[in-house]
Design a protein around this nucleic acid. Structure first.
Lengths: 185, 185
DNA sequence: TCCAACTCGTTCGTACCCGAACGATATTGT
DNA sequence: ACAATATCGTTCGGGTACGAACGAGTTGGA
């Protein structure tokens, strides 16, 4: 039964909603979409900042650097473009992150055996050790951050977010020219 | 009934979960927390990049610049620290964003009437016009991005994210020393 | 063979973004 | 009144972050 309760942030929310409505009156807005997107971004920023402050800062690692290192810890080595996709950053950005990580001895660049263009990034023993040292604390904070949610609502949250991700995957790859696709299957 | 279906990304997901489990075997991990946090960040990055590419780039505005401008469009003027909090950025970052916006004539810095330290940022007519021009398209893409969700699941998503936000609010403000507070009331 | 078209990672320019340090202003205690 | 303290916005250094341009490497035809 949605709307059956009203916590503090709900009150605040409706006030903001009122203000936005007032500011853009006469125009039709999709507020649930606006709020969903807005909240996704707010939560992400808050979580990222929290993690960087409370967990990563002590190890001099940024979120992106840690994500890259984590991916390499799990899979041992990855080609550059896979690594970028996995970390959600572009190739240009990855170059900088890998350089930072390499300078500190956490990863090393390796040339691809058969294709001289491609780059294989490998984690070093030191890099593996770093992740193993950080990960328990990192996961503890992940649990803390989501402690207000039950096991089920966490799954619900992840499912909804993956729905968004899937929509964007289709739209962005397919996107600009190949419109008029007959649904996503 | 959760788990009753298995889309492509679910299969991929469980494989990743297996890999992570394998990599960190012997350690107890909270996977639902890890996945929730990971998905929040993935979705936020994907949405932000999509919006910057498809909507904001044509107007030469970054996500943060647009958020700041939007906030000012709704409330007319805001003090610096409020603006920073509302946009989810730090004061140091806001200085740069406001400078960019001011250089392009969208906002202007105003001194506080009674407190010489404080800064009041006001939106200009040009800034208001810019938001009014961008917002319809922006909201259309917000709707598109969340089109895979129903009205109800969007509310569900927002509610879960606000739960995370509330947890972080308490933890980060209260945080390190002032523990043992008797509930949030 | 050889060279156009393609596909890599890197570099570049611009802008963000944070936390720490800084200078200016305001407040407080004495 | 005035020095210590607190609170502002700004500056600074280091590190992302993007897209466009670039150069090296590969591939597919003429």
């Amino acid at each position: 039964m949605p709307g059956a309760f009203s916590s503090d942030d709900d009150v605040e929310l409706r006030q903001a909603e009122r203000d936005v409505t007032l500011a853009f009156e006469g125009q039709a807005f999709d507020f649930t979409a606006l709020l969903a997107v807005s909240n996704v971004f707010r939560a992400a920023t808050a979580v990222r900042n929290h993690m960087e402050r409370e967990v990563l800062r002590a190890h001099q690692l940024s979120w992106s650097a840690f994500v890259v290192l984590f991916v390499l810890r799990v899979w041992g080595s990855k080609e550059s473009h896979e690594l970028a996709a996995e970390a959600g950053i572009t190739g240009g950005t990855l170059t900088g992150v890998v350089s930072t990580l390499e300078r500190r001895g956490f990863v090393k660049r390796t040339s691809h055996p058969s294709d001289g263009r491609r780059l294989v990034v490998k984690v070093t023993a030191k890099g593996r050790r770093a992740v193993d040292e950080i990960m328990p604390m990192f996961n503890k904070h992940e649990a803390m951050v989501t402690e207000g949610l039950t096991e089920q609502t966490r799954h619900e949250l992840s499912r909804h977010l993956r729905t968004i991700l899937r929509t964007l995957d289709v739209f962005d790859s397919d996107g600009l020219d190949g419109q008029d696709r007959p649904s996503v299957d």
